[in-house]
């Protein structure tokens, strides 16, 4: 399994080891961390929740999409759920390829797709309140996490 959802701290070395190959001349790693300030508001900690089985399925789908689009060797990603503190790693993505352009491009694509359609939710805990971010319930807008046309079963 190259995709994983974990409740434990993410170790970058582990995800690097999942993708490194003799044929690779490049490994890109993206590490998404918990930021303290968003638009001037101070986050105390975050809580992530996932629809785990579907999230894993969608992460694997993203890996397949990448392999169709770029000549990459391997893709691995891990998302942490549960309570995360400031500077903790929420997500890590690693891509290996013979040359660097596709490793960079595919890695960015992976993260953008995760943010669009993998069923994982973040709850912000601020000094003065808490909220599930991205929950647009009650409005027409589906401003974050909008799956694309091809993401629906027909």
């Amino acid at each position: 399994m190259t995709c994983e959802i974990t409740r434990e701290p993410i170790k970058i070395e582990d995800i690097y080891q999942k993708v490194v190959r003799r044929e690779a001349g490049a490994v890109t790693t993206f590490v998404g961390t918990v930021r303290e300030l968003t638009h001037g508001r101070k986050t105390l900690h975050l809580e992530y929740e996932a629809y785990e089985s579907m999230a894993l399925k969608k992460m694997e789908q993203i890996v397949e999409e990448i392999k169709e689009k770029w000549p990459v060797l391997e893709v691995a990603m891990v998302h942490r759920i549960g309570r995360l503190e400031i500077t903790d790693i929420a997500i890590a993505i690693a891509v290996s390829s013979p040359h660097r352009p596709e490793a960079y491009e595919a890695n960015r694509y992976a993260l953008e797709r995760v943010k669009e359609m993998v069923p994982i939710w973040k709850k912000e805990h601020w000094e003065d309140g808490e909220k599930w971010v991205g929950n647009q319930q009650g409005t027409k807008a589906y401003t974050t996490g909008k799956p694309e046309e091809g993401d629906f079963l027909e």
């Binding site: 996932a50 929420a90 994982i120 939710w121 973040k122 647009q136 974050t144 996490g145």
Partner: peptide, 8 residues
Amino acid sequence: LIPPVSGG
């Protein structure tokens, strides 16, 4: 039921 996602 899948609210707008906010992973990553």
